[in-house]
C-alpha cells in the first residue's frame, strides 16, 4: 500500500519526546524562570522536550505507525524518564 494522497511517496513522522510528569526537568524550570524575567508571569509551567522528524519510505500507514512506535520505544525515548507521541503525515 502506498501512502495516502495523490503522488504521496512516504511519510513524515513528527515525534515529540517530553519528560515524564514527576521527573525533574531543570532545563524547563530554567527556561520558565527566564520567561518570567522577560515579563511573562502568566507562564505557569514549562516542560522542555525534543522534537524529531523522521522521513519514511513508502509503506502502509499501519506499518508506519507500528514501526515509528517501535523506534520511539527502542531509541528515540527512554521510557524511564520520557513520554512520547507522534503523528504521521503523508509526504511527497
Amino acid at each position: 500500500m502506498s501512502a495516502e494522497g495523490n503522488g504521496a511517496t512516504g511519510w513524515l513522522a513528527r515525534v515529540y519526546v517530553t519528560p515524564k510528569q514527576g521527573v525533574l526537568d531543570p532545563q524547563g524550570k530554567a527556561v520558565q524562570q527566564s520567561l518570567h524575567a522577560l515579563g511573562y508571569p502568566e507562564v505557569l509551567d514549562l516542560r522542555l522536550g525534543k522534537y524529531v522528524e523522521v522521513t519514511l519510505a513508502e509503506i502502509s500507514r499501519e506499518s508506519a505507525e507500528t514501526r515509528v512506535r517501535e523506534m520511539c520505544e527502542r531509541l528515540l525515548a527512554n521510557g524511564v524518564i520520557e513520554d512520547f507521541r507522534f503523528d504521521l503525515e503523508a509526504s511527497r
Binding site: 521527573v23 525533574l24 531543570p26 532545563q27 527512554n78 524511564v80 524518564i81
Partner: peptide, 17 residues
C-alpha cells in the same frame, strides 16, 4: 548500563544544570 536496561533507572541533567 541504564540505557541498556542492565541497571534500573536513568541519569538526567544535574539539578543545577
Amino acid at each position: 548500563l541504564c540505557e541498556a536496561g542492565l541497571l534500573p533507572g536513568a541519569l538526567v541533567r544535574n539539578r543545577d544544570l
